[in-house]
Write a protein that binds this DNA or RNA. Structure first.
Lengths: 146, 146
DNA sequence: ATCAGTGCAAAAGTTTTGCACCTAT
DNA sequence: ATAGGTGCAAAACTTTTGCACTGAT
């Protein structure tokens, strides 16, 4: 799903309710939209966002990413490699993380897990869930066989 | 489920097949068993294991935890707080992670997710999966209401 | 004799924080 | 004037690595 201008506007509106959308934050959002399917790290967001705002500081990126995650605009994703990755929150989905090449694949399988949980563990209020499958993608499986 | 001697022996046997069970590694395993339900970080394992082997070094703990995870004796758990946590691998289960107090609750809900995946995404070979639910436990929900 | 394993210290890497400055309101 | 936001540098933290040493086989 590619980024759309409408998408960005929605996020702008959402963001402006709570805090200022400075040019720095705009550049960071745009970078995230450009890299929507790439699950970038903070450093990667920083590199891309600097193309539009060269004086940007890395600390500003971290602060903005924290803020966006707090607003629910972003999700944090941990692929197990020691760095936090970020993705635009465009609905629930799951990740396939390849232990060979590190690539992250997205799948969207409707799962009624939270409903199941709510009925069984009603004293825990689920805000969001994370489902990750670790393993080997087709490319890496072929490489292993050789 | 409390630690049992049988449990430790099983792990010892499993471990000795592949590498030496040194006193350092024994102390680390025992610490993990003592903290079985606490999902300790490497630093926490280090502190507890040092009670039984005071000269233990932190690097040794990291190396042993890596090895045990590689052998499948341990699972790594990321609770989203920037530190890797470890737990004895005693079968598939899921985690409820409280965003208020940081406590981690375990649930064991049989889910046939991997079978579902295998049928739908047959070109990705799943080694293991991680399902985490983030939210607020009952204690923290009550605190929020006040 | 060899080789895996260890402890210490240093290094590496990511993320956070302190602080002075800036900029909208 | 004030409060929020920024950039830079330093700090904090977790994890990894280099190296000399040890101890078992």
């Amino acid at each position: 799903m590619p980024a759309s201008a409408g998408n960005l506007d929605e996020i702008r509106q959402l963001t402006e309710k709570e805090c200022r959308l400075t040019p720095q934050r705009g550049a960071i959002l745009q970078a995230l939209l450009e890299m929507e399917d790439r699950h970038p790290t903070a450093e990667e967001v920083y590199q891309v966002a600097r193309r539009n705002w060269p004086s940007l500081g890395l600390a500003t990126v971290y602060r903005a990413l924290d803020m966006f995650a707090g607003l629910g605009v972003l999700y944090r994703l941990d692929a197990g490699d020691g760095r936090i990755r970020y993705e635009i929150n465009d609905g629930p989905h799951q990740h396939l993380i390849c232990l060979g090449c590190g690539r992250i694949f997205e799948i969207r399988e409707p799962l009624e897990l939270e409903g199941l949980l709510k009925s069984k563990y009603s004293d825990f209020e689920v805000t969001y869930s994370s489902i990750r499958f670790f393993g080997y993608c087709q490319d890496c499986r072929l490489k292993k066989q050789r």
